[in-house]
Amino acid sequence: MVTEEKRQEILEKLKNAVIQYDEDTSKEASKEALEVGLEPNDAIFSGLVSGMEEVGRLFEAQEYFVPELLMCADALYAGLDILKPHVKQLDLGVKGSVVIGTVEGDVHDIGKNIVKMMFDVAGFTVYDLGRDVPLDKFVEEQMKTDSDLVCLSAMMTTTMVGMKKVIEDLKAKNPNVKIMIGGAPVSQDIAEKWGADGYAKDANNALKDAINMISSLKKLKEEAEAKKGS
């Protein structure tokens, strides 16, 4: 079993690799984590994701901007690609699958990709439809995959209005599906008016929302385990 000291050392390395967008160190520390027998889940959440949370803070403080965010995401993926195959079962207590994409007419997918990353981290099955996605495709894919969550992204006012129709269609076909919308022009007001379950106004908020979602899923899991134990 790995000592607490060693564990902290590796976690710190993973965290800093993400913050300093250092892909090489992220890979190296991930391999080391596996070698010394650190629980891969622990390395992902307490290392990589913890680094990404700090990145979110730096973004909010306007010390980091989108280029840095993208490079940090690359560093996270560099580690995740090594760790993920060794995760036995990422049981979050909730079945997670999500359909995600940028709506038709919009070719901006950076925000969408950041959110997708967080779902990847959380072990969700992600059906990524990409960008400029015809509106019907979201409904079709949700039906086909029976996903719990659909995430729609639009970066421009001129494409945002398309989301309204997708929400209506999705809710008509499956009232239980949760819908999250995001992108620069989106507001809480619009999300409520159009019947979306959640919204994120920029990449950072999307990141925070996704992290919150994952944290609450983790909490659910812990509660379930506590119940099992008692």
């Binding site: 038709e104 007419g105 070719v107 400029d132 421009m156 001129t158 494409t159 398309g162």
Partner: peptide
């Protein structure tokens, strides 16, 4: 470019 000629809805052209 794509002008979305197949759609009735208003969409702005994209690359």
């Amino acid at each position: 470019i794509n002008v979305y000629a197949h759609l009735e809805d208003i969409l702005y052209p994209t690359i």
